[in-house]
Amino acid sequence: MLKKDKKWGIFFLAPYTISLFVYTIIPIICLAYFSFTEYNLFNPPRFVGLANYTDVLTSPDTWRALRNVGVYALVYISLNVFLACVLGVALNQKLKGMKIFRTIYFVPSLLPWVAVSLIFTGLFNPVYGIINQFLAVLGIGPLQFTFSKSWVEVVSSMAIMAVWKGVGYASLYVLAGLQNISEDVLEAASIDGAGPVTKFFRIIIPMITPTIFMLMIFGLSNSLSVFDSFLVMLGTGGVTSSEYTVMSMLIYNNAFQFNKIGTASALCWVAVAFVFVITLIQTKTEKRWVHYE
């Protein structure tokens, strides 16, 4: 690029620089400040030291929310990654009509969470829902899904819905990853007598570990920000029973329903710390099982 034109670089980057400072960096600083204050948007913030953090960390709601997010993430990530791998391998066959399958699996990921959750409130209905009608034919159930009294069942059902919505999208990443595996390797394995299951677990999975790792990282960030579906399924006014709450719901209730900005800000930092710790564990253990070529 011509040297004398360098000042034009600043011109092109000016709007984004403003955005980055005003809409991201200053808000982060404010969030840190608010977390040490009592602030309801109308009166000026009042400094309260660590009170918000002790409140938040001693509140059972916070721990329930973290527990729910944790279980949701566990169910969602493990099911989503496993099914995406199976689906990716199946979609990798060179057959006519594969494009139609890809479309069918991909489309749910485009849809709004609110609509998908509304549909699943109907499907999950313990008495009239068609899922239980099918399970009855197989001699299973009836299951309570999101209408259950048990939080594990509620949270797992929410995660299963998310898998239905997202697995097609995830499988496209697997499909892309599979393009790096040469046919020769699989051919050689077949000659050595490896069956399809052995090939799947011993060759295909180890060779797409970078893709799997990426899907896990995405899955974690999706799990932490899960909000719309819980809002639709579990509560109407936004104030849900704390038994089934998640972090973003707690933040939403405190900040936007009760105007407790200080408490909400402290919750935000707890959420950030939670992601940080899990991401740290993920990246520390990455070397043990992710193989880059």
């Binding site: 980055l20 808000p27 969030l31 608010f34 602030y39 960030s221 933040i251 800000s265």
Partner: peptide, 20 residues
């Protein structure tokens, strides 16, 4: 700096942005 901010969940930024 911009890449680093990608890791901050948008729900969290919503609190100070809303007060703004």
């Amino acid at each position: 700096v911009a890449l680093a901010t990608m890791y901050i969940p948008s729900t969290i930024l919503a609190v100070p942005q809303y007060t703004m």
